[in-house]
Write a protein that binds this DNA or RNA. Structure first.
Lengths: 252, 252
DNA sequence: CAAGCGTGTGTTAAAATACAACACACTACC
DNA sequence: GGTAGTGTGTTGTATTTTAACACACGCTTG
């Protein structure tokens, strides 16, 4: 009923940060726009969202915006990242063990992830907090020095952590990619950590939004031959397909 | 100039919380509405305001709106915890290394902490995210299994972490305290972690809000002789003073 | 069971707001 | 003097919001 729908909207808004009325209409095709408007109005009354022209945004999102360094990044290419995260979420099976990195795309993955019985390792603080909401997810954070830019941890000691752990699958993201330089990121210890995960994981899925293609960051942590699946958005340039196919990478 | 006007708008918005375009036009009669729109647009880009239909509101205002009803419900004994956190924050000197635990009181401490050059170790995810905002704080998170109830980590492996690290001071909090049973908490691995910190830290400060006195939790991790300073609130029962004095504990 | 009431919803037209495009003024720099 | 860049104003158009009314449904009450 009404209340259910309103709660659902609130949840959606929590996940996505903001939603346009148009998007909401897609989610709730069997009610009119006017009804959704009224729902938003009510949520605004309750102080849970802020209505902006064309839709609404969650209060939490606003607080983040002011939180500065980390979250500014989350604001860009949001749609692509959510798209990728949703695809990735569908690839996660119950009763497995996996590693998720600490990037912003990974945070959306954490939000989209089903609440199933899995064991997740992550080096992302935001990812961890998000996953801590899920009842059935067993969660371990890799400790270490905190990189403030992206709220992730990394440290040489992490290696010790991984010595006694195993995971089937690593779902990670890169800050940059070119065919020549592979997948790269901005921090050396993060790159080291990701290299280690490559060794421990049976499969490696890479999340890469198309805006990162053609860019280069200082530290390469993986090449094409290291990954099994590439999860990307609709703007992925077709001319790269061949190159990925050559390495038996599933692009989706 | 443009910049001046924009800053002035930002200030106004800070003071009033929100402003309609109409009101803005009154304040700036000699520029067009379009210009004011563009100014608001820019401020929005900078993440300093939120544009809403008909005008804009300051980010701070939004935080207030959500700050009131929500957080007060979430946490209990908030005032006492903030009081304790403020006291504790004053005890932290620059250029030291300290451990902070992952409790809710610790989170308030993280918020109250001055942005000075210290190295902080913590097992609290919320604490870490809070501290990540501070430019001068060097931050390390102890990894491990995440306890969802209080968003803290703990694991046997943490010991390995601490082997190569040192800190002057540990500021921790307990979930319960009695003279007979000492300081206790609800999780065994957390208790283990805190015991280890006791060994590594030169000084141990305990944050304990008075509501926890007289309660007992399953796992004791410290006794009176283990701590150096007790930070508590105004409701601390006077009859305990003597007992603490006996162990040379400074109560504040 | 019909009448009456409240709630939730949909439809429409009108109002309010925002945006895009272009034009102009002013400055700085060559 | 020309030219590029920035800031601004004007206009018309597009979009979004609101208001007002109408309908359907469930519930109570006579």
């Amino acid at each position: 009923m009404k209340r259910d729908r309103i709660e659902e909207i609130a949840e959606l808004l929590d996940k996505r940060g903001k939603l346009s009325l148009e998007q909401l209409e897609e989610f709730f095709p069997n009610v009119s726009q006017m009804t959704l408007r009224r729902d938003l109005f009510q949520l605004e009354q309750e102080g849970r969202i802020i209505r902006v022209r064309g839709g609404a945004m969650s209060v939490k999102e606003v607080q983040k915006v002011s939180g500065e360094p980390y979250t500014k990044k989350t604001a860009i290419h949001t749609d692509e990242k959510i798209e990728i995260a949703q695809k990735a979420a569908r690839l996660i099976d119950a009763n497995t063990s996996l590693f998720i990195d600490g990037g912003t795309t990974a945070m959306y993955l954490a939000k989209e992830m089903p609440d199933i019985n899995v064991h997740v390792f992550t080096n992302g603080l935001a990812v961890a907090i998000e996953l801590a909401q899920k009842k059935n997810v067993n969660l371990t954070v890799v400790g270490g020095q905190v990189l403030k830019e992206n709220l992730s941890t990394a440290s040489p000691v992490a290696k010790a952590y991984f010595d006694n752990t195993n995971f089937e699958l690593a779902i990670i993201s890169a800050s940059a990619f070119t065919i020549a330089n592979g997948f790269s990121c901005a921090s050396q210890i993060e790159a080291d950590l990701l290299k280690i995960t490559r060794k421990k994981a049976k499969f490696m899925y890479m999340m890469l939004d198309s805006s990162k293609i053609g860019k280069i960051m200082p530290y390469t942590f993986a090449h094409l031959e290291d990954i099994d699946v590439l999860i990307t958005d609709d703007n992925f340039p077709a001319e790269l397909n061949e190159e990925f196919a050559k390495h038996n990478i599933v692009v989706m």
